[in-house]
Structures are given as structure tokens and as C-alpha cells.
Design a protein around this nucleic acid. Structure first.
Lengths: 189, 189
DNA sequence: TTTACAAAACTAATATCATTAGTTATTATA
DNA sequence: TATAATAACTAATGATATTAGTTTTGTAAA
């Protein structure tokens, strides 16, 4: 009805994030998104390149935010404390923004330069936390892979209700990370 | 053209698996599947309930097969050796049948009874391997969650090219599992 | 052997998507 | 004030899954 709704790219992205978080990234369609924004579907094309592009933007935003959450969480912490905090921050993010997290983990094409860059930031952050451990570069990279596998696997399984037993989930995560870190200490020292 | 193509539910499922493994589960559509089977799309409905049902069947078959792969891998092995072998079998399965693995990890609804059952079989299998460790039931369940997180996370990241550094992937997986198992030994003994 | 029925394929139609082309109204700028 | 850029629109297209109804085929009963 009203021309000039006042939309811009960021507003569209925010609405998409909200919709993904609330109803799952599968339910995110341009049709539903346009309706939410009181606009006809084709109007969205003034602000996004298309559906795949929107999905990519979600992934990128998710990667940036999850890294920021980890950075915030490790303030004033080092070594095992920092890794534990970073791991919990990662999983908490997935809980709080499930749609955005789904967007990260169901990536369109990871070859995209912007996504590559955002992913690298996560890796570089973890490498910095590992510095005090005095690992070789190769060793540190293996640890980063291990850490990412643990937290992503945990968040992913939790998100799809993969943990159905009556058992405290935070405790499972704490034990997973601490058991790994304990093993790491022995390997090192 | 020819009536009576000789299709049945299993043939349709196999073709779907093949298509998912070859081109990714995103590319799996009823239209493409019907074309591959030399049949019109609506004909598929004689053998499947619909698209969501087909996806569910893929997930279930994947869960069954990945559990069988782990069972086969641990023959003649126990404790750490068995867990390591099971973990590698899990990841190898994801590499060999990427579409089927995607189907497992992008599950539609995990609340479905058949999927629940298939998932439980995986958990029960892991619990049996953990028996010799003499853990309490609660401890064992935490370990199962940890193990599943590690291998699923690793397979998932690897599948989407999440590991971009020049670094042997099998070695990363071996270190991840062994580091965790080492930590577990200390916690226990 | 013939007939009847169930099942597997079909055609046709609908609804929901994303996307593109072309149009109109609004805002900003020259 | 006039012009240009832009954000909305309508209309149309092609792909998708799904349903309804039809035709053909295979099988089992009479």
C-alpha cells in the first residue's frame, strides 16, 4: 500500500535472522520475509541479490557474532579457563540464536571469500588463545580442529535434540572440554 | 512411456541415496529423482508418502548404516582401540556417503519414533564399548555425548570444507580422539 | 480361461516458491 | 522547480511438491 517502506539491507537481514531464530532456517522464505516486512516479495530484491545471497549473509553474520561472543567470554581468562569459556560461549550462542547457528552450519558454499574470511577470524582467535601452551604451529592447528569439532558437534547435536537422555547438558559439555584439555596437558608436559 | 516400470520403495530410496551422495542432498528433488527413474513425478507417490517422508527414510537408513559401519570396525578390538576404530569408521562413512550423512545431520524432526529408535541403537552400541571402562551409568552417558560430539563435529566440518589448512585430516581426528581418551584415563584411574 | 480387482503408471490441475521485466510513485539532488 | 535515482509495485515465468482422477497392467479369483 504505502510506497517507501523505509527498508534497507540491514533491516531485511535482521528480520531474516529473527525469522530464522524463531521458526528455523528452513522456514525462512522470501515470501514469508516480505510478508513480515509488509512488502511484496520482489521488493526485497532492492536490498538483497537473491535468496542464496541472503543465506550467505546469515552465515557470515553468524560467524562474526559467534566469534565476538567468544572474544567477550575470554576476557580476563587464559589457557584452560579461556578455552572452556570460549567453548561455552560458542554453545550458548547456538542456543540463543538457533537459526543463525543453523545458517552457519548449513552453509551454502564455504568457498565464498567473505565466508572464508569470517571463518579464518575464528581460527585465528583460537590460535591466539593457544599461544601460552607453547605448541608448534602444526600441533596448534590440530588442536584448533579438535576444539571446533567438539563445540560444533555438541551444539549441532543439542540443537536437533540429539541428546535425549535425562542428563545435564552443560555438565556433558564441561566434561567433554575438560577431559580433552586434561589429555592435552599430558601430551604437552 | 512403458507402464509398469518395476519400481518399489527400496529402488526409489536407493536412487535417492545415490543422487544425494553424488550431488548433495540439496539437489535431491522429486522431479530429478523421477527423471532418473524414467518416471513422472506423481508416480513416485506410489512408493513414498511425500518429500519429507523420503528425507526421513534417508536419515533412518543413514543412521542404520553408520552404526553397522562402526560395529564392523570394532570387531576384535576393545577399549581405546575400539573407540578409535569406531570414531574413524564414523568419519569414513561420512566421507564415503556424504549425501546420506548430510541426511543424518540435517534431520527433519528427531522426534519421529523410527529415527529415535535408530539413534538409540548408536547410543547403545557406544555404551557397550564403554563397559570395560567400568564407568557409572551417568559417567558413561556423558562420555557417549562427548564421543558423538567429537566425531559428528569433525565429520560435519570436514564435509563442508571447514578445514582449509594444509594439514592431514586423519591425523587431526586421531589426535582429537586420543587426546580425549588420554584425558578419560586420568579421570578414571 | 476369463473376469475382477489392486496397483502402478499416467495426465491435468493447484499452490507455493524464487526470480525477472517493466511500471509507478517517492525521495533526493541539481 | 525539474530531473534523476530508487524503492516500491504488478505481471509473468519456471520450478517445485502435491492431489485428484484416469488408464494400463499384473495378479488372483471365479
Amino acid at each position: 500500500m504505502a510506497y517507501r517502506q523505509g527498508l534497507d539491507a540491514e533491516t531485511v537481514l535482521q528480520a531474516a535472522i529473527e525469522m530464522a531464530d524463531l521458526q528455523g532456517v528452513e522456514q525462512l522464505t522470501l515470501a514469508a520475509l516480505a510478508a513480515k516486512l509488509n512488502v511484496k516479495t520482489p521488493s526485497l530484491y532492492n536490498h538483497i541479490k537473491g535468496f542464496p545471497d541472503l543465506r550467505k549473509q546469515l552465515s557470515r553474520r553468524g560467524l562474526v557474532l559467534i566469534k565476538e561472543a567468544m572474544v567477550e567470554a575470554v576476557i580476563g581468562k587464559a589457557e584452560d579457563d579461556a578455552l572452556l569459556a570460549a567453548g561455552f560461549a560458542y554453545v550458548m550462542f547456538a542456543r540463543k540464536q538457533p537459526g543463525l547457528y543453523e545458517a552457519i552450519s548449513s552453509l551454502p558454499d564455504y568457498e565464498d571469500p567473505e565466508l572464508k574470511e569470517a571463518g579464518s577470524q575464528v581460527v585465528l582467535f583460537l590460535l591466539r588463545i593457544l599461544e601460552p601452551y607453547g605448541l608448534s604451529e602444526e600441533d596448534a592447528l590440530h588442536v584448533v580442529r579438535g576444539f571446533r569439532s567438539m563445540v560444533h558437534g555438541f551444539a549441532s547435536l543439542e540443537h536437533r535434540n540429539g541428546f535425549r537422555m535425562e542428563l545435564e547438558k552443560d555438565e556433558s559439555l564441561r566434561r567433554l572440554l575438560q577431559t580433552y584439555l586434561r589429555g592435552l596437558r599430558i601430551a604437552v608436559k
